[in-house]
């Protein structure tokens, strides 16, 4: 069997490992000062998981997301994304890996302000060069309708509410059908109702598309939404709970 992959037949679904972290360590250096952000992280994420990473500020949540998302490299240890060892990749290869396999959702939405909602969603598809205009249009209008944003498609981000922007950001992350979507505090800038609605959408898309979602949060409600809860403290995983099992029990 290929390294970094295991297959489990569970409820007649094919489960594949898409992320594996082995003894990952991340140290930030500033002059002579060193700050250990992550230490001894071992983690495996499989397809279709809906994971929440929680922990106090400075516990290493964002650093962990950055490493999983190939935005950064570990100081020690291995990050393996869909069989690819990140350590050996250069900037361009990392960019390509992100483009192909990972979607991002940000706390501040981070839509490109000069592009309309439609164009923001089209952007990742254009970077991949594997669809024609007609296919793209079909995909984008379909997904906008799915999340109830069809009538806002041609508006610029500044003409949308926070919740609408975040829904566009979710759609942008999802449109290229990545293996994994990472969300850094996706509801932190939204009111609780809107935040819950966004989480519902993410959960539905997670179930429907079998795409893994990993999001960091401080919010208890968001943690409860996840099927797996990973709690970090001082750069270490102190708890990794399967909440679905806990709820059943």
């Amino acid at each position: 069997m290929a390294e970094g992959i295991f297959l489990i037949l569970k409820n007649y679904e094919l489960i594949m490992e898409i992320i594996r972290l082995e003894k990952v360590e991340k140290i930030y250096r500033s002059g002579k000062t060193e700050q250990k952000a992550l230490e001894g992280i071992d983690l495996s994420i499989t397809t279709g998981e809906f994971i929440s990473i929680a922990g106090p500020s400075g516990s290493g949540k964002t650093t962990l997301l950055n490493l999983i998302g190939c935005l950064d490299k570990p100081t020690a240890g291995e990050v393996i994304v869909d069989e690819v060892r990140v350590k050996n990749l250069d900037h361009n290869q990392l960019a390509d890996l992100r483009s192909q396999k990972i979607g991002f959702i940000f706390q501040t939405f981070n839509l490109i302000p000069v592009l309309t909602a439609y164009e923001n969603v089209e952007f990742p598809l254009l970077l991949r060069h594997n669809t024609n205009a007609e296919e793209r249009n079909k995909m984008i209008t379909g997904i906008f309708a799915e999340v109830g944003l069809a009538e806002y498609m041609h508006r610029r981000p500044t003409e949308l509410s926070g919740g609408q922007q975040q829904r566009v950001a979710v759609v942008r992350a999802l449109i290229k059908k990545p293996k994994l979507i990472l969300a850094d505090e996706p509801t932190a800038n939204l009111d609780s109702g809107t935040g819950k609605a966004i989480l519902q959408i993410m959960k539905e898309l997670n179930k429907k598309n079998n795409i893994s979602f990993v999001f960091s949060t401080h919010d208890r409600m968001v943690m409860d939404f996840a099927s797996r809860l990973i709690i970090l403290k001082d750069g270490k995983i102190i708890k990794d709970i399967n909440q679905d099992n806990s709820r059943k029990n």
Binding site: H91, N92, R98, S99, F106, I112, P124, L127, R128, R172
Partner: peptide, 14 residues
């Protein structure tokens, strides 16, 4: 700057 980061996260090369 943050937009540059977003573009990079979407797969924009340097």
């Amino acid at each position: 700057t943050r937009e540059i980061g977003t573009l990079m996260s979407l797969g924009f090369r340097r």
